[in-house]
């Protein structure tokens, strides 16, 4: 059996973490979860996920800063980051892309489209 690809879900909403966790699990991914930016950075270093799904509005350290820190770290910068936003605003999208995000989804998004994007980022 090939090793499961690990995905870190970072969202302060328990509901969102549960929805994403279920959908990823049934599609064969291993799931790790964090509920704030500080925990996210710890989990990335401890667990070495293959991809991070990152909400932008987070306690302690926001998603932009987490993304920026990951992309400025030589050991972590190749981990794809998909950011999730509740706001559909052009400047927010540009800010997310500016901090190195690999993809951007606005809530509520189509879960199958998210899975398609994940498959394209971690072959």
């Amino acid at each position: 059996m090939p090793e499961k690809k690990k995905i870190l879900i970072v969202d302060d909403s328990q509901d969102m973490r549960a929805i994403l966790s279920m959908r990823l699990t049934i599609n064969g991914y291993g799931v790790i979860m964090a509920e704030d930016g500080q925990e996210a950075l710890y989990k990335v270093k401890e667990e070495s996920p293959h991809l991070v799904i990152l909400d932008l509005m987070l306690p302690k350290i926001d998603g932009y800063e987490v993304c920026r820190m990951l992309k400025f770290d030589d050991k972590l910068k190749n981990i794809p980051v998909i950011v999730l936003s509740a706001l559909d605003q052009q400047d927010e999208r540009e800010k997310a892309v500016g901090c190195g995000a690999d993809a951007y989804f606005i809530k509520p998004f189509d879960l199958e489209l998210l899975l398609t994007k994940i498959r394209s980022l971690i072959l």
Binding site: D15, A18, I19, M22, R23, I26, P108, L111
Partner: peptide, 15 residues
Amino acid sequence: VCKKSLEVYTDLLNQ
């Protein structure tokens, strides 16, 4: 069957 059911649940819960 379980996978299909969970796809429907998660789609609903997402909306």
